[in-house]
Design a binder for these strands. Structure first.
Lengths: 154, 154
DNA sequence: CCCACATAGTCAACCACGATTGACTATTGG
DNA sequence: CCAATAGTCAATCGTGGTTGACTATGTGGG
């Protein structure tokens, strides 16, 4: 292997380029979210909880199970997110032990604001790639996910 | 916003899907690298040094500067990578203070083995997408990088 | 109807890790 | 000569997580 091929090979690796793209987008997204929410203290760990909280409300234990960490860890993060007014708690009517975590769906802290973080990025991408190019690429990335989900089962 | 749109909107966000794809590929890549190198102790932090070490050899200070961390942090990681036989040190002939970090280019620990980690992934992707689809997607992701590099300057 | 056991959540202590800062030696170079 | 630089060791820090102990509530079998 000629050493000069090194960089070339990295450039030619789709996996490598996708990893890099994902990282960069994530950085941009986090930065955008901090601005959109006006919450400089918002951290990746908080964002990581988002996908595990659904609009029907989710208990802390369930979030912990889904994320694969202890409920104590989640509890702390949720408390921080409450302070940031990203989510609120509501008692479960069927089980007074459990508290359900909800996103705000209205008001200045509504989740739609959260999405605007990535939406800003998506808008840029759409602008640059064109609507058709955007959709095409989205479709392709879906294929990647399909491939990866098969790979999981090895 | 109907709560049922929540998941749909995430699915429709190219940024979100790319972030997810990047993460998954990275996980697979790290796992594959651990197997390819037969080094269970190989960590993300070590891998993160790779792009900053070039085949001409790189000093610890330079790696630190490129990565944006202290040279002490890099020093420790390099020592671990030496133990793992991923890299070796060589005195700089022009400056006896500096040690250059090199990848092994031959033998069982040669860097090509390292690439096989991502290469396995690329092979799968190529297989599933077809040579043409692979190249097309690679091109598209390059476009993303171009767009992001412009966005950097905001 | 209990009582035993499981589950939800919280507080506190602790831990691992990746980083930092500070102090030091050795070498370079104007 | 002396300020700047390369590298290392050691102490410390912040963070994101763990385990353990506790309260409170739910649940199922004798």
């Amino acid at each position: 292997m000629k050493t000069s091929d090194f960089e070339d090979r990295k450039q030619a690796s789709l996996a490598h380029q996708l990893i890099k793209a994902g990282r960069l987008l994530n950085e941009h997204g986090l930065a955008a979210a901090r601005i959109a929410f006006k919450l400089p203290e918002l951290k990746q760990t908080h964002l990581d909880l988002f996908p595990h909280i659904d609009f029907a409300g989710t208990s802390i234990s369930d979030i912990a199970k889904r994320k694969g960490v202890s409920k104590q860890a989640v509890s702390k993060l949720v408390q921080e997110m409450i302070k940031m007014k990203l989510v609120y708690l509501e008692d479960d009517p069927n089980d007074s032990r459990t508290k359900r975590v909800f996103f705000y769906t209205r008001g200045p802290y509504a989740i739609s604001k959260g999405f605007s973080a990535l939406e800003v990025l998506d808008k840029s991408l759409k602008q640059q790639l064109g609507e058709h190019g955007y959709r095409l690429l989205l479709k392709k990335v879906d294929d990647i996910h399909a491939i990866l989900s098969v790979l999981e089962k090895d």
